[in-house]
């Protein structure tokens, strides 16, 4: 249970003059739900971007199951077992919900051009598998009734859930959710919490960025706090809540953080 899955070692990320992450070290353990919180612009999304290979860190290393991710391309990182969602929804808008998820499922498949043209038995098998698994995931997320709708025509809540389904389809070990409940009402947030807990029950490790303290405190096993690119706290939700540095960082931010 306490094996380290992802190790974020002294990572610094600079954009021109802006230091988005400053010597951040963070470990995610197998099977936990780690909440990552912090005020706007603290560097949370940048953490995701560094982990998934969108940016190469200026300094420091990220390793996954002991393997350094520095040399891997983005799609290879996905195959190693990290999947993510996006804060500003980035679905394939001209594809159906089902197809969106199938793109994720395809990450684990092999058949390429030759297989597709010849419809080899492996290709047909993989295709069927992708489709069924994707449909299952849509059902799991509770959005299978709109499987054939173009992603851009889905209601907002469906789109957010579809992002999670698509990420799960890549069969990750670590699932990174970037503010999945943004724009949800309390009831929807509650539903999402249930889902996240269920996802963890299925054996996934979850890294959750969230603004809403209540949500984070409720579902996370552990919480890490970023402020101005620095990690200022890391521990059990109850401890972090009472940490003076965290309170200072959030003071005056709490009430307009939606």
């Amino acid at each position: 249970m306490s094996e380290v899955l992802l190790d974020f070692n002294n990572v610094t990320m600079q954009f021109g003059g802006v230091t988005a992450l400053n010597e951040v070290s963070l470990q995610i353990k197998q099977g936990e739900i780690l909440g990552l919180i912090g005020p706007n612009g603290a560097g949370k999304t940048t953490c995701f971007n560094v982990m998934t290979g969108v940016y190469a860190p200026t300094l420091g290393t990220v390793s996954f199951e002991g393997k350094n991710l520095a040399k891997l391309k983005r799609f290879e990182i996905t195959k190693v077992g990290i999947a993510r969602t996006f804060q500003n929804i980035r679905l394939f808008s001209e594809m159906t919900a089902l197809e969106n998820v199938m793109v994720g499922a395809d990450a684990r498949k092999k058949a390429s051009v030759g297989g597709a043209i010849l419809r080899t038995s492996r290709q047909r098998h993989e295709e069927k598998e992708s489709r069924e698994r994707s449909m299952e995931l849509l059902q799991f997320m509770g959005i299978s009734d709109r499987a054939e709708t173009a992603a851009r025509n889905l209601p907002y809540g469906y789109q957010r859930r579809l992002e999670i389904a698509r990420a799960l389809a890549t069969e990750p070990k670590l699932l990174c959710l970037d503010e999945p409940a943004a724009g949800f009402n309390p009831a929807e947030k509650e539903e999402l919490n249930e889902l996240i807990l269920k996802i963890r029950e299925q054996g996934y490790t979850v890294l959750l960025i969230e603004h809403d303290m209540n949500v984070v405190m409720k579902v996370s096993d552990r919480v890490a706090v970023l402020d101005f690119g620095q990690k200022i706290a890391d521990g059990l939700p109850a401890d972090v809540r009472n940490n003076p540095a965290v309170i200072a960082a959030y003071l005056g931010v709490e009430d307009n953080a939606s």
Partner: peptide, 9 residues
């Protein structure tokens, strides 16, 4: 970008 992050080469 999203495609690549979903494992598409």
């Amino acid at each position: 970008d999203a495609a690549e992050l979903m494992g598409v080469n």
